[in-house]
């Protein structure tokens, strides 16, 4: 019958119209900011630096400023300057660790190549600021977050990392 396709189409849309009042699968809108600002335990956005001791966040950063992540980062958004101690000798800590999050593409390669489990992916994404450049260049202090925070956002991954670090410690300990 001529017009059957059109009538089929009209029944599909009517079904969707009435269904949107009854079933959640036909009203998939999530209204922000009341909803839709949640992340899963697997989401990634920009990196952050992990520290172990909340009392001395910057001193207990796991990062040793080896600069591997800076070299491997595809868009080259990381800038690291190694710290020097009182005598001018290089120590295993970053004095400057800047990430330009307007350049960072969240690809996670820095996390993969880091040998010291010190940089991990954060899932927080509401990072808008009012200054075009200053607010989007995150420094060491803004990037440093605790291991407890890491457990909160990626629990399974954080447990694996802790196990690996404990195993490494045990191997290194008796030696």
């Amino acid at each position: 019958m001529l017009g059957k396709g059109i009538i089929n189409g009209l029944t599909v849309t009517a079904w969707n119209f009435f269904g949107s009042y009854f079933s959640k699968s036909r009203l998939t809108t999530v209204q922000y900011p009341e909803g839709g600002n949640t992340v899963t335990a697997f989401s990634r956005n920009i990196p952050f630096l992990v520290f172990d001791d909340a009392n001395a966040p910057i001193d207990s950063l796991r990062c040793v400023a080896c600069k591997i992540c800076e070299k491997e980062c595809p868009p080259q958004c990381i800038y690291i300057v190694q710290d020097k101690d009182a005598n001018g000798k290089l120590i295993k800590s970053p004095k400057i660790f800047d990430i330009d999050i307007s350049v960072c593409m969240g690809c996670q390669i820095c996390v993969e190549v880091c040998p010291f489990e010190s940089i991990k992916m954060d899932s927080h994404f509401e990072l808008a600021g009012r200054d075009r450049f200053a607010d989007l260049l995150l420094h060491r202090e803004q990037l440093a977050k605790s291991n407890d925070y890491y457990h909160k956002i990626h629990p399974a991954e954080a447990r694996e990392v802790d196990d690996r670090l404990a195993a490494k410690q045990k191997k290194a300990g008796p030696a």
Binding site: T13, N16, F17, S20, Y21, R26, L27, T28, T29, Q31
Partner: peptide, 10 residues
């Protein structure tokens, strides 16, 4: 509103 509900929006 009608178009939105047909298209599964609010």
């Amino acid at each position: 509103k009608g178009l939105a509900r047909i298209q599964n929006r609010i």
